[in-house]
Nucleic acid binder design. Structure first.
Lengths: 169, 169
DNA sequence: TATTGTTATACTCTATAACTATA
DNA sequence: TATAGTTATAGAGTATAACAATA
């Protein structure tokens, strides 16, 4: 029950390591007071093109109703502003503030460091091989890599601790 | 934003594929009306040694208060019984019924089929290589493979759709 | 005094649907 | 008639703590 090792089937190992990787990333963002989803918002806004909330909703697969509170929290912390949209008065043009840009820069560095540490023991060839195998798995899973139907509906219980969820064997 | 491919950093790909794998497994269990956690309970009881609810709680990293409703649901479906414990009247001895054994057998076959399909395009050498690389990652993540401190506390947000959570770069 | 099972409570996260103002 | 943003509400899932029976 406890060892996702040789005698366990592979799907469970993939899910377990994926879960731990996401958890670790979440912890890497914690010092900045950022939930991974908030980091995603800041990063999406990093380019500075004044996206609307609906733009973000579509890009991040987050319903508009959820996006409101998300943006509220970041705005209250002074990390972004809701500027008026130049041509459509219904929309907001979301823009990072100075502080927002500064925090994003720091968080991105931490994200890079996390990735570096994660693959510290890997050679370039091993990283490439892992990517190759995982991308093949993604293809088998019909993970469309551009529109994620399954991944945007965690309702089926796909996003929980694999240890408690039983794995695949 | 949408392609966890070559230009994305690796941690995000690992998390995405792990999430999709868990989602797929969840869907593989759905025809049996089993949440992955319920499958884990049935499987743990498959040996038939009459475990207590606390035994399961510890083994599956699920709090006792949650275990009650979990067992209730499976018992109401006639998949397991709460027999009296032979020596300790506080405990129950949980045992699968005939129906429970039958469903477990079917679900385990589906789980095996899911794994088989997942790695259908893989050679034995590729599977071994993927396992090797993932286990190395598990070591780096200090995933203790036997007691999972991080994995039993999804509170930090480690178990959500990586697409919406922003990944690691 | 500790443990097993249980219940109650509250908290977080989420989706759905309504509502407004604009288009 | 449709869209952007917002709000309200309700549902699921969860953890915490208290409780009774038993050890």
């Amino acid at each position: 029950m406890d060892r996702p090792s040789e005698n366990q089937l592979g799907g469970f190992l993939v899910a377990s390591v994926g879960y731990a990787t996401a958890s670790g990333f979440s912890q890497a963002m914690a010092p900045f007071g950022l939930h991974p989803r908030e980091f995603a918002v800041l990063r999406a806004l990093g380019g500075g093109d004044g996206a609307s909330q609906q733009d973000l909703s579509r890009a991040l697969h987050v319903p508009g109703s959820r996006m409101v509170a998300l943006i509220d929290a970041l705005a209250q912390r002074g990390l972004l502003r809701r500027d008026p949209h130049p041509t459509d008065r219904r929309k907001h043009a979301l823009r990072l503030t100075e502080d927002g840009h500064a925090l994003l820069t720091q968080a991105q560095r931490a994200a890079r460091d996390y990735d570096t540490a994660l693959f510290a023991t890997f050679t370039a060839a091993e990283r490439a091989e892992l990517d190759r195998l995982l991308l093949r798995l993604a293809g088998t899973l019909e993970l469309p890599m551009g529109t994620h139907p399954e991944m945007s509906e965690p309702a089926e219980g796909g996003a929980t601790d694999p240890e408690a969820d039983g794995g695949s064997a």
